[in-house]
Amino acid sequence: MPIDYKKNQVLFREIVGVEEAEGLLEFLHKRPAAKIDFGGCTHLHPANLQVLMAAKIRIAVWPKDANMCFWLKSALQPEK
């Protein structure tokens, strides 16, 4: 499973495809306080990104991959 749903945490692993967006949306709707762990994520389909942006989630761990981290921050961590 590319996404591992914990109690109050969502773990993203490797490549998270377009088909995950629906489930992610549902989960975040129920648990708005959940934090995201991108640690093992190497690619994220933008449908998921949209869900995360709309949900205004908090990020617990940013991706290890520097490139991935750069792009995700450009969407999820607006400049102060």
């Binding site: 933008p46 449908a47 869900v51 942006m53 949900a55 205004k56 750069f70 792009w71």
Partner: peptide, 25 residues
């Protein structure tokens, strides 16, 4: 790429109304 900002072209609706598959990025 020196800098990037991924933004939505419209304000985000409530999660209930969000259509994840309509790209607004």
């Amino acid at each position: 790429v020196l800098w990037c900002a991924i933004v939505a072209r419209e304000s985000w609706p409530n999660l209930v109304d969000l259509d994840a598959y309509r790209c607004v990025l």
